[in-house]
Amino acid sequence: MLGFFSLLILFASVAVSIVWGGRDERLTAAAFVAATFLTWLLDSQYGDTQLDVLVVDVALLAGLVTLALTSDRFWPLYATAFQLIGTMVHVASMTETGDFAWAYAVGLIFWSYAVIASLMIGTWLEARWRRSNLS
């Protein structure tokens, strides 16, 4: 059920970004879709640190850092910060020796929703800015 909910949130953010977002929002939505499907292809098991998923998250982080440095919008800074925290969950899990599967999974999932929320808010602000400038 959680997988369905995650997929619904992802596609809703992509649809909102395509309809109301600008170039930055659309590029970020495409990157989220690519990262999500790559992560699912890698068969996520939270028993120990997922180095292959870490590579996907670092690649997404690099894209968000690039966007944050080149964009004239403010929301990519939040998305990048949340993605950095989510990536650090992987790093923190490397130092843990006990049973941490639940905390690892929750940490990754929670911060991924925060990144998507940043995109949704950024898209809303972009759409609002366009409407006010067209009037």
Rank of each mutant, 00 (worst) to 15 (best):
V53T: 10
D57F: 00
I9N: 10
A30E: 00
L8H: 09
I18G: 01
W20S: 07
G3T: 06
F37I: 05
G22E: 03
A68K: 01
A29K: 03
H90L: 08
M88S: 15
T123W: 00
I116D: 10
D99N: 14
F37G: 01
L27E: 09
L51Q: 03
V14P: 00
W111G: 01
A31L: 12
T39Y: 03
S13C: 15
L67H: 01
E96K: 13
G107A: 04
A29N: 04
W40C: 14
M94P: 03
A30T: 00
A92F: 12
W40R: 14
F32N: 05
T66F: 14
G86I: 06
D57K: 09
S17I: 03
L8N: 08
S118K: 04
A68D: 08
V115W: 05
A81M: 08
I18S: 00
A127I: 02
D43M: 09
W40Q: 15
W124L: 15
M88A: 15
T49D: 10
G21L: 00
D52V: 13
G3I: 10
F100T: 13
G63N: 08
A114Y: 04
A15G: 12
A29W: 07
T97I: 12
L38H: 04
L67E: 01
D99T: 14
L2N: 06
L60Y: 06
R26H: 02
A101W: 14
M88E: 14
W20I: 00
S44K: 14
A62G: 10
M88C: 11
L54K: 05
L69Y: 10
P76N: 01
P76E: 01
A68W: 03
L67Q: 08
V65T: 05
L108S: 07
L134E: 12
A15M: 09
I85G: 12
T66K: 12
L69M: 10
I18T: 04
A29I: 03
A81L: 14
V89R: 03
L108N: 08
L27D: 05
R131N: 04
I116A: 13
A92P: 01
G86T: 01
L41K: 15
A62Y: 02
A105N: 13
H90P: 05
F5N: 04
D57S: 05
V53M: 13
T95Y: 15
